[in-house]
Amino acid sequence: MRWRRSLFAFLAVAVSCSNPSVEQIKVEVPPGVVVPEGMAYIPAGEFIMGHPDDPKTERGKKVFLKAYLIDRYETTQARFREFKPGHSFQGGKDKFPASRVTFQEAEDYCRQAGKRLPAEAEWEKAARGVDGRKWPWSGYIESPNDGFSGFIPEEVDKRPEWVSPFGIYGMGYNVWEWVSDGYSYQDMPEKDKGKFKAVRGGPTQTHLTVKFTPAYFRNWMDPEARYNFIGFRCAMDAE
């Protein structure tokens, strides 16, 4: 299935989504770049990746990325069902994020859509913007699901108040998301090297306490894992 191209791509000033609380970065899409429907253009430039306090991250260093496009929303169950009709979501709702998807299935979905999984750096820049903020929405907020033991998914466009500075939804709540990178870090035990993929952006929980993880936090997962809290979104090169 090919993605549809939008008509408003040329020299558009994309002030993403109407949003009451998160100040949006004004993005100018260069001439010749087509932004498909449902994607956002992330311009070339540096951003702050990781945090000095978290040794498994890039520790807050500046990382330059060339321009890219990323899905504004997590891939929905409806879209994934078109790709894989028999997939079991455990409680299907069209606008909920596709979940119980392995890394390979996520990668295959993106490829058939003419896209790819985002690199970890691309995911993090889209989530944090360029000012090194801890959460996409900047300030601390309580999880609305605090006090419950399980994962509660939501419609992928439910929280306009929690979009990232680039207008991306779901980057810090809803499902954890597969990214293309393997999971590794300095001094990683030899026996664990090469075994895991990074997943980004979901909540963590300890008993009945549910917290949003910082946007720089890196979780890890067996690529064969198929859990209700793992989904994905796609990205693509801007040229």
């Binding site: 455990q90 419950f148 033991s149 399980g150 994962f151 954890w176 963590t204 009945l208 979780n219 209700n228």
Partner: peptide
């Protein structure tokens, strides 16, 4: 306040 699903969360 415990989920039916009960999958261990991060």
């Amino acid at each position: 306040p415990y989920s039916v699903d009960g999958t261990i969360q991060p």
